[in-house]
């Protein structure tokens, strides 16, 4: 197996989001599969993290971390449903 599960996104995305988005429910733009980001297949970390749908293997998101910027590309995600405690 040459990838990790989506829990590998938790640390890098915690630089950007104050919430743990690996528990967010995502919807794959290619096949419509819904599920938590923690179930994505994550390749990398270099030259960037590439998270793919566990069903159709299309790219759901990429995260490139430069020295001064991070680029989060949600190209393959229709939406993220993020649980927020009251």
């Amino acid at each position: 197996m040459d990838y990790q599960d989506g829990n590998a996104l938790a640390g890098p995305l915690s630089e950007i989001f104050s919430l743990d988005v690996t528990v967010a429910q995502g919807k794959c733009a290619a096949c419509g599969l819904r599920g938590p980001l923690a179930q994505l297949h994550v390749y990398g970390p270099d030259p960037g993290l590439v998270a793919r749908c566990p069903s159709c293997e299309e790219v759901v998101l990429t995260l490139v971390r430069g020295p001064n910027d991070a680029w989060l590309d949600l190209r393959g995600s229709v939406s993220l449903r993020i649980p927020i405690a009251e």
Partner: peptide, 16 residues
């Protein structure tokens, strides 16, 4: 900014 390697690293953005 580069350094020299003697192996041949494999970087992957998806299944081979």
């Amino acid at each position: 900014g580069q350094y020299l390697v003697h192996d041949f690293p494999v970087l992957s953005a998806g299944p081979t």
